[in-house]
Amino acid sequence: MKVVVCVKQIPDPALPGELDPSTNYLKRDDKLILDESDSYGVEMALQLVESAGGGDVSLVSMAPNGAVGGLRTALAMGAEGAVLVSDAALAGTDALGTAKVLAAAISRMSPDLVLAGVESSDGYTGTVPEMIAGALNIPSITFAKQIQIEGGNVKVQRQTEAGYDDVECPTPALVSVTAGVVEPRYPSFKGIMAAKKKPVEELDLSALGIDSSSVGKNGARQETVQVTDAEERQAGEIIEDDGDAHEKIIEFLGELKVI
């Protein structure tokens, strides 16, 4: 069984991010790290292969400047190898362009199963996985909390508000994994050492046969027109307790529909 996991490498959310005022893009000059949203897909893939008693977990990522920091983390967790698509012409690519590029890279890898996160932590359009499936013309299942491979089928418990649906489709397929459904392992120190030596194949657009005008800023159908600061957080409402504070709090939570 061959599983390919899409992993996005993002600027460290713990560091203050900054937008480039000329383009309104997030600056990605610092080291990129593995998006936590994708650590669940990596863990899920490793568990699938372990329980199948064999197979191969490979990674695919599109990132600027040949960034491999996040890939190394996933390789240290146990993935075998990675494909990185990096090309100066990709600057400004929108979600659809990203999906096209990733799909082209994935089709060369002939996987049985493609895993992705439901949404990334920095862009969070939550659209790339399904568009990859569209481009590859394979079925896709979203919001997986559990995945099983049986024969030529993938069986998924698809999380819903009420519980989960059992969904099944033939492989090859793409499944997006809900954050938090598995506990991503810490890389072993041997894994960290080995990750240095694992293969990362770097591809540019010409290697993928993609016309650079169809991606990047020129190919993007989406443009960031304006950026506005988020509203300052307002102080919350303080309820003085005159004996009925609990009722007021219940009412407040009811209005928010959280209870």
Binding site: R72, T73, A76, Y186, P187, F189, I192, M193, K196
Partner: peptide
């Protein structure tokens, strides 16, 4: 020990 490898080990340990 390779310096980058050591850094990653310490980072993983720190997060744990």
């Amino acid at each position: 020990t390779d310096i980058d490898v050591a850094k990653e080990m310490i980072a993983a340990l720190k997060s744990w």
